[in-house]
């Protein structure tokens, strides 16, 4: 498998603020995203997750300034040198708050904005807008005003606006953090549907979602990747995650709690189905 994204020993510090020295936000991050993978990125607040996301389309450091060391290659292109606009066609970033990323007053114009910036012919833009809105299930919403949509719908428009640029890599930076439970479900549903055609980096605090969607999990702590592996293994380390300020899926926590109290590793289930079966068996045993 080929790496679409290759980050090698990346260090980054934002420009120093008055009264505060420059601090490394990323401290030697290395990672690869292989074609077709869904990778979950977890980390406590301030761990450097959003900074890492912005480093993938070159906004960090090209627009933010500051000090940088190491390398970020997007499909072989150096993200420090190529224009952000060029990288944006390859890496699409969706931000946490859909409100602040809206630039237009209709859904259609919002989704068309990116392709327009690429100077695509009108027929191509039209096609992409239709396709992208269809992909997030909002085909009927073209002439609506984004401000009047529900939280989940807003975030789906934001995703469509990025999809319309046809990036192969999607970076979703806490896309569900400010949504109500149903909005979260809607957005996760969309992410699930995008999976077959995209390489996805899903940054989130929602370990439940990561456990269900991700092929691989990375945990960032104080600018360093401290855990990496398949979700099953990473979420099994309940105590370590807790020390890092993260919450494993509740079902895993339950298994951990039972094992701890019993003093033996009696249970190893990771979803509701497995838990029902295992606990049912234990109860009749």
């Amino acid at each position: 498998m080929t790496s679409l994204v290759e980050v090698r020993d990346l260090w980054y510090a934002y420009p120093a603020l008055p009264g505060v020295g420059a601090q490394w936000v990323l401290r030697g991050v290395s990672l690869q995203l292989r074609a077709g993978e869904v990778v979950g990125l977890l980390g406590a607040s301030g761990a450097g997750k959003s900074t890492l996301a912005l480093a993938l389309n070159g906004s960090v450091p090209q627009s933010t300034g500051g000090q940088v060391r190491g390398e970020v290659l997007i499909e072989g292109l150096d993200s420090k040198r190529r224009p952000v606009a060029e990288l944006a066609m390859r890496v699409g970033i969706v931000f946490q708050d859909p409100e602040v990323q809206f630039l237009q007053t209709t859904v259609e114009a919002e989704v068309a904005f990116g392709p327009e910036n690429l100077g695509l012919p009108v027929s191509e833009i039209e096609q992409r807008v239709t396709w992208a809105l269809g992909a997030v299930g909002l085909g009927e919403f073209r002439s609506r005003a984004p401000a009047h949509l529900s939280g989940g719908e807003k975030q789906r428009v934001a995703i469509a606006a990025i999809l319309a640029m046809r990036p192969r890599i999607l970076v979703l930076d806490e896309p569900t953090a400010s949504l109500d439970p149903r909005g979260k479900l809607e957005v996760l549903e969309v992410i699930r549907a995008l999976r077959p055609d995209h390489t996805i980096l899903l940054i989130t605090q929602e370990s439940e979602a990561v456990a269900e969607l991700a092929d691989r999990v990375l945990v960032l702590d104080h600018g360093q990747i401290v855990m990496e592996g398949d979700p099953n293994r990473v979420f099994g380390e309940v105590e370590r995650l807790a020390r890092l300020g993260l919450r494993p899926p509740e079902i895993r926590e339950l298994a951990h709690c039972l094992n701890r109290e019993l003093g033996v590793p009696a249970f190893d289930f990771s979803d509701v189905e497995q838990a029902v079966e295992a606990l049912g068996q234990a109860a009749v045993a």
Binding site: L185, E250, I251, V272, L279, G280
Partner: peptide, 17 residues
């Protein structure tokens, strides 16, 4: 449009069983 925690879902399933 609310969703109870996963653990509540599990407990309900166990009670049903």
């Amino acid at each position: 449009r609310l969703q109870p925690p996963r653990i509540v879902e599990l407990v309900e399933r166990l009670v049903i069983s």
